[in-house]
Design a protein around this nucleic acid. Structure first.
Lengths: 315, 315
DNA sequence: AACTAAACTGTTACCGATAACATGAATACA
DNA sequence: TGTATTCATGTTATCGGTAACAGTTTAGTT
């Protein structure tokens, strides 16, 4: 492996000059810079990341901590990791996948944390290295997420535009920030149209929302659209409506949220929010590296939601 | 952060002794060892992985290169990564996810490669760092895989035991080693029972195997079992049989291979081979780290297949 | 007792980079 | 013309470890 010294010899300068050409090119004359660049090219020089890390007291390691249970059937985490890994790779950082338990073992330059809940706030606050969360939060941590509120707001709006007269919100029974935001989007749209919000909350399992519809079928008027907080819940609603003999999308509408995979097994496909998790993962990485290298906080990064049309809303 | 020197001072020894206690404890007297251990404990000393890596000319980075297109709907890769990451983490190594394109950028201590095809053999041979492949191969590279041959052998055996009189093999139309092995398992079982093998090959899409059965329905005798090289192909077969009015498992049997996820959307569930990709990923990591640290080749690591009973074989 | 080998422990140099300081040349200003 | 200031480059020490070698005991032989 060629080192700084090799390049320095070849270019007839000190190794410090070579180092400067790489890190502070403005402090070296163009003439020497050219010499050094040429030497680097000829020798196919690649800096030794490890030596750099040692000198800088950095590690070039980013820890990714997934706090929720990993549902490996959802490609969500896979996409997230691919997105993050892509960016880190580009910047010569490497990724360490850690759990809450082995979180503290080994150094790193920063953290990406996903699936944070209230109980985690305290220890996250104590971290001394930069952190970016994947998923919105209300504790002031930087994060990357879809604009959840805008998502349900837009879907509700679309449902109304398509002529559904009742909008029922089917939410996830959890106290996480994204859920509040999704509820808020629905509520705002409904209120802007002088309608009364109706919300129900379940654990995020399709059979629970399914059960709900089946048991309340006779009280659900035609021309109702269900705005669901997840595709999972939406699929349950869809199945129940079909089982009860309701017609989708003519008499009933359904919308979901996420659109990562589950939707592929629904028929008709759920109209939902498409999130590009890979892209968001990349952004998450970029965000964190910026923070590490500049030392500045970047603030939250919110992706505007895109509606992914399926067959569960008219037209 | 406490360093070797801090520990050395506290224990009243040279830092070299501390280093020895960590790396060659047999070369230090028990007395000093105790002192050092105590100092380490009191100071909560954790070695600096980066400095170690620099001194050892290592990087503590393992590159994972996925050569096939990543089908993110299959949790396969996710599981693989989780398995690998778990092990690496345990040994304080970190994972770098690379593609064929950025493969050469940056150093590492070893490679895990999955999805290798013939065309890749040459460049893989040229690698100077230890390599472990995920997926069997016939070029002498170390690998981790399920015993593919045993898998189809066992499924064929089971089908025969259940009384199916004809066994048709539905394979993947590719020249990869695992496919040859799966075919070989079927063929061996069939020949041991003095039957004539019948093989068909398709690209790995369910609609292709589905089409095949539909078009040849009248030529397929009752009491036939289809031994398929993948769950994907098996699902196609299953759908076609049902569509054509055949009865599963009474009149027709179907078996798959993989059982990672797709099977979850089949009804009835395919009887298939269950692979614990996470565990195999871990093994892959262990294998590679062994190789890196000992310098010795470990040979292939083959996991014996486990049959996962679904509803596509009688009884 | 003298000599050699083995077993510990300490010293030094080095891994490949960077920051802080030192040096020397060029420019500025009085 | 002499001195202050700036700018470009080189020198040294350092990051936190490890290997190779050197020095000191201790034990074993004759």
């Amino acid at each position: 492996m060629t080192t700084l010294v090799d390049v320095a010899k070849k270019a007839n300068v000190s190794k410090m000059t070579v180092s400067r050409v790489i890190n502070h090119p403005d402090k070296v004359t163009d003439e020497l810079k050219q010499l050094v660049y040429e030497a680097m090219r000829e020798l196919d020089y690649h800096p030794n990341v490890i030596a750099k890390a040692l000198a800088n007291k950095s590690t070039r390691i980013i820890k990714l901590c997934i706090l929720e249970d990993i549902d490996t059937t959802e490609p969500y985490y896979m996409n997230l990791m691919i997105g993050i890994a892509k960016t880190l790779d580009l910047h010569q950082y490497s990724l360490q996948l850690v759990t809450r338990r082995n979180f503290d073992i080994g150094n790193c330059d920063g953290y990406i944390i996903t699936g944070m809940r209230e109980a985690d706030v305290d220890w996250i606050k104590k971290l001394t290295k930069p952190v970016v969360l994947f998923g919105e939060n209300r504790y002031g941590f930087d994060y990357v997420d879809t604009n959840n509120k805008a998502g349900t707001y837009l879907l509700s709006q679309l449902a109304l535009k398509k002529g559904y007269e009742h909008l029922i919100y089917i939410g996830i029974d959890s106290k996480e920030s994204f859920e509040y935001s999704r509820e808020a989007g629905y509520i705002q749209q409904v209120q802007e149209n002088r309608m009364v919000p109706e919300l129900h909350r379940f654990d995020n399992h399709s059979h629970l929302s399914e059960e709900y519809v089946e048991q309340n079928w006779k009280n659900i008027p035609k021309n109702t659209a269900f705005i669901c907080a997840s595709d999972r819940l939406a699929i349950g609603i869809e199945r129940a409506i079909i089982r009860c003999g309701g017609k989708i999308p003519d008499d009933f509408g359904v919308t979901g949220f996420d659109g990562v995979f589950l939707n592929q097994i629904a028929s008709p496909r759920i109209t939902t929010i498409k999130q590009s998790i890979i892209e968001m993962g990349s952004a998450c990485g970029e965000n964190l590296l910026d923070k590490i290298e500049s030392g500045e906080t970047s603030g939250p990064l919110v992706f505007e939601p895109k509606i992914c049309l399926g067959g569960t809303l008219r037209n």
